[in-house]
Design a protein around this nucleic acid. Structure first.
Lengths: 153, 153
DNA sequence: ATTACTGCAAAGGCTTTGCATTGTA
DNA sequence: TACAATGCAAAGCCTTTGCAGTAAT
């Protein structure tokens, strides 16, 4: 997605920020990812291409991009410990995270939107962000655990 | 709620755990709270009644109570930093947290359950917990901001 | 030439854990 | 008496920050 990266860099310039190899690299890394990644995963991917990049720069850059609206950042893990990031294009994504293998299973979000809409209609609130976090086992782990008799069904 | 505390202590005994002054005190503290509190708030309330209780014991006890199903623990604040706890009586509660005044607006959870059921049916996963976190403005703040022209509508 | 950005390492905030001691059963 | 529970302090985990050096404009 060179277009997206160009746009992002144009925005950086426009706001008086500098274009550095690290910032470009992080845009490239993020552009290749369909799902949310945590800071460390992003760092590993970037580090594989440029061993000199530091985790601190990853955090600072992600923070900057979040402020500029270039990335979404959320807590989707079951424990809600690690923050996760992705480029903020396309529809919001929500997951079930498997506590056994870490797989993230995409969730249809129309019902979540329906919840938000209903909330607005019935309570008069305004909703700026909605997040559904499910914890459990992915299909493969569910089946494996059933075979081991560790899960009913 | 002495009834609740008795029940909780009966459960502790039944599972082979010991009844200690700290555990009883924490049940008393929690029983007086209608909303989620973080560990430090719970510690402060307990500490006011027994200066010898430690934060480590608060964490350990809350963890134990969570395992026993006596308390719910979640991240409901917008920043998701601090974990919060409350006695788990009554149905699960989910909120929209107002970023302006902190008010928590209760959310109907039937759609959340529907999401979970659909996920199980369509993807073969198993869901152990579901959590919806909405961020936005409560009705009062929404209206106030509209009057100030700071919110469309 | 400026001044923002970076890497490093240290610090911060919340939570967990090791260990010797205390206290329940 | 036996062993779980506690308090203390240290460590852990993720994230942020201070600082001196580096690099973009």
């Amino acid at each position: 997605m060179p277009h997206l990266i160009d746009d992002a860099e144009a925005l950086l310039r426009e706001r008086g920020f500098k274009i550095t190899p690290q910032r470009t690299l992080l845009l490239q890394v993020l552009a290749g990812q369909p799902i949310y990644l945590d800071a460390d995963e992003i760092y590993e991917l970037a580090h594989a291409q440029d061993a000199s990049i530091s985790l601190a720069t990853v955090y600072r850059t992600l923070g900057l991009y979040a402020e500029l609206g270039l990335v979404d950042h959320r807590y989707v893990e079951p424990e809600h410990r690690r923050e996760v990031f992705r480029l903020s294009e396309g529809p919001e994504q929500h997951y079930l995270t498997c506590v056994r293998c870490g797989t993230r299973v995409l969730i249809r979000t129309d019902l979540l939107n329906q919840m938000a809409n209903e909330l607005v209609r019935r309570k008069g609130v305004s909703v700026s962000s909605a997040c559904a976090c499910f914890t459990g086992y992915c299909a493969a782990c569910t089946e494996a655990l059933r075979r081991e008799g560790k899960l009913p069904g």
